[in-house]
């Protein structure tokens, strides 16, 4: 019988939204017990949040000063140490999980499954490859531990209201001192988080400047949306890196996604495949974005956005 350990991502205060989706994914293993591991300097609040996720068996809280910041080299040996008692170790396919889980897998001497999008059995999974151009079915040797990341956009968050127990654990292992956290350069914003927002407004190279991007931000604020961008827009410095959507950015699944002046390169499209409705506005009727959009409008975004805002924002 399988038993599953999920490594929690958090910022010291709150549990990352991807963890509730990992629990949903783990729910596909036929009722196997699901434990969540919180590695933190002081993680009471995070552990309580994890314990409230429906379907969780127990939360393990490993507090240690070194766990203050999420350095993979520090966390991985602790996860590997605890993994002994589990058949499956899962984490989210966020940058946190992608950094950490392969290091854990290597310490356990196994390959890792990236981006589980569907659980077909305890050891069989579907995952996207080639920027989502193909779906690969993989099977892990039944004798091996499964170490995997979960593609968040493929799962809904599990319900809350659970009352799992919280257990403090002391993980006894040496930690390296060769890696140090310096700082996080983040722009604080009141906008909905791109990865959980129900509505996302995104702009591409066509915006042509950081000033013009204000158009996108204003419309987003007006309809309570998160803001996304193409790689071209980020590379050009119009918007920060954490807005990039796509193969090498964020994979998102909002109810509605607005793409303004984005051509629709495969690397971008892979990030929005799971959106409910894709709206595309592009002045080129031949733009590939129209092959995937649900509602398309050929037009100039500089004219369309203000009109749209006037009609939807009021």
């Amino acid at each position: 019988m399988a038993n599953i350990l999920i490594v929690a991502e958090h910022d010291g205060q709150t549990l990352n939204a991807s963890i509730a989706k990992c629990v949903s994914c783990a729910g596909g293993f036929g009722g196997a017990p699901i434990d969540i591991l919180v590695l933190a300097a002081s993680g009471e609040a995070v552990a309580r949040e994890a314990a409230a996720l429906q379907g969780v068996n127990k939360v393990l809280l490993a507090e240690r000063a070194e766990n203050d910041k999420p350095l993979a080299a520090i966390l991985a040996p602790q996860v590997a140490e605890l993994a002994g008692g589990y058949t499956h170790v899962l984490g989210p396919s966020t940058t946190f999980g992608k950094d950490l889980l392969p290091r854990v897998a290597a310490l356990l001497g196994v390959n890792q499954v990236s981006d589980i999008m569907e659980v077909l059995g305890e050891h069989r999974f579907k995952r996207p490859i080639y920027a989502g151009s193909a779906i690969l079915t993989v099977s892990v040797d039944p004798g091996n531990k499964v170490v995997a990341t979960v593609r968040s956009a493929s799962y809904q968050p599990c319900d809350t209201g659970g009352e799992a127990s919280i257990e403090s654990v002391a993980i006894d292992c040496d930690l390296p001192d060769h890696s140090r956290y310096v700082e996080l350069q983040a722009q604080t914003t009141d906008r909905p988080d791109l990865q959980t927002a129900a509505r996302v407004v995104a702009g591409g190279r066509a915006l042509a400047s950081a000033e013009n991007f204000k158009l996108v931000f204003d419309f987003a604020d007006c309809i309570g949306a998160g803001v996304g961008a193409s790689r071209a827009a980020v590379d050009a410095g119009y918007v920060p890196n954490d807005t990039q959507v796509g193969q090498t950015g964020k994979i998102i699944a909002p109810d509605v996604y607005f793409a303004f002046g984005i051509s629709g390169a495969i690397q971008h499209l892979t990030g929005i495949k799971d959106a409910g409705v894709i709206v595309a506005v592009n002045k080129d009727a031949e733009a590939p974005i129209f092959e995937v959009s649900d509602i398309g409008l050929v037009g100039d975004l500089f004219e369309v956005i203000p009109q749209l805002q006037a009609k939807l924002g009021g």
């Binding site: 690969l136 509602i295 398309g296």
Partner: peptide, 28 residues
């Protein structure tokens, strides 16, 4: 070091064909 077998490759599920609208009113 193996341990993971690639069983089958498939096309992703396509999205259903969308519509084109003529103007902002149509979009709204």
């Amino acid at each position: 070091l193996g341990g993971i077998t690639q069983e089958a490759f498939a096309l992703p599920e396509g999205r259903s064909k969308g519509i084109m609208v003529d103007d902002v009113d149509g979009l709204v």
